[in-house]
């Protein structure tokens, strides 16, 4: 057995240990074909990290694609059962354009999806599995959690136009508080209102501290409900010192809602894990079930710095 392990790369060993973690927690392995009809990706272009897809014509004349993403295939092939649950994990190669070379690259991705009726229990389970996945890679990791409902709620409360909201969301993702303040000024918001929106950018870190700081954001019932949910879920993760609240995790709100999260490893420059709830994507694809899931980008492991 030892001999076999020595043949495997870090990437492969990590992938396998993640698979075993997910299997132990009641997730079933999901196998899929390498190809999907290109149509699936055209319809959901914005959901993909990179727009470019490798395509080819199949023997029957259909335009096919090498899959650039796993989640879309899982949703497409799942039965719509809003009252039950489907828990799956995968360890697959996807094909995306690399930012550096601007050419296609094969990337190994492991991850899981939970489809069906999603309550706080499932959210806590998925988040703690995300945390454990990072722990498999390194002891020095951080899981950054945001609640898109709170962000959206605050922007809607101030009745900002879609354009302005998108600008603020972009600045939020950059932690650019000056940018947010400038946009608020353009919209003639008062100092007090501006400082409330700015809070989304400036609060960061330890859950208890952040929860106290965002109390003033309880502007209406809807936001209040979302803050309660965030607080509830964070309580469920209590004891996990690597969990932080960070509203700069802004997944595309066309597809995502509720919880959104990203995982980082000390020494790896960009996020290695990314996930969230994507009920809106489900609806767009004609499903009434809710869903939450995440992916671990195993190719990032190779970028760990030597020092």
């Amino acid at each position: 057995m030892k001999d076999i392990l020595s043949v495997l790369s870090t990437e492969e060993i990590t992938a396998l240990s993640l698979c075993s973690l997910y299997q132990k927690n009641g997730y079933a392995k999901y196998r899929m074909s390498k190809f999907e009809e290109y149509d699936l990706y055209v319809k959901n272009k914005d959901f993909l990290v990179s727009e470019n897809v490798i395509t080819f014509t199949d023997t029957d004349g259909k335009l096919m694609a090498l899959k650039p993403d796993v989640t879309l295939s899982i949703i497409k092939n799942s039965k719509d059962q809003p009252d039950s649950k489907m828990k799956v994990y995968y360890n697959e190669n996807v094909y995306r354009v690399s930012k550096g070379t601007k050419t296609f690259k094969e990337i190994r991705q492991a991850g899981l999806e939970c489809l069906g009726k999603i309550t706080d229990t499932e959210i806590i389970e998925v988040l703690s599995l995300a945390s454990k996945s990072l722990e498999e890679i390194s002891n020095s990791y951080a899981l950054e959690i945001s609640h898109l409902g709170i962000v959206k709620g605050v922007l809607e409360y101030f009745e900002l136009s879609t354009d302005t909201s998108n600008q603020i969301i972009k600045f939020l993702g950059e932690k650019n508080s000056q940018g947010v303040v400038d946009v608020c000024k353009q919209e003639n918001l008062g100092d007090k209102d501006t400082s409330l929106i700015e809070k989304l950018v400036t609060v960061y870190g330890e859950p208890k501290k952040v929860l106290k700081e965002i109390e003033p954001l309880r502007l209406n019932q809807k936001i209040s409900k979302d803050i309660d949910q965030l607080s509830m879920v964070l309580k469920g993760l209590e004891g996990d010192k690597n969990v932080h609240v960070d509203f700069s995790v802004v997944n595309d709100m066309k597809y995502y809602n509720g919880f959104a999260f990203k995982g980082f490893i000390d020494g790896i420059p960009s996020g290695i894990l990314s996930g969230g709830q994507y009920d809106r994507l489900m609806k767009k694809m004609g499903k009434n079930s809710q869903a939450i899931g995440f992916a671990v980008y195993l190719d990032e492991l190779g970028k760990q710095s030597a020092n």
Binding site: H244, D266, G267, G271
Partner: peptide
């Protein structure tokens, strides 16, 4: 500007 990962670990 700050690296996204460093921001967490050298916060």
């Amino acid at each position: 500007i700050a690296n996204k990962s460093s921001f967490k670990f050298k916060n």
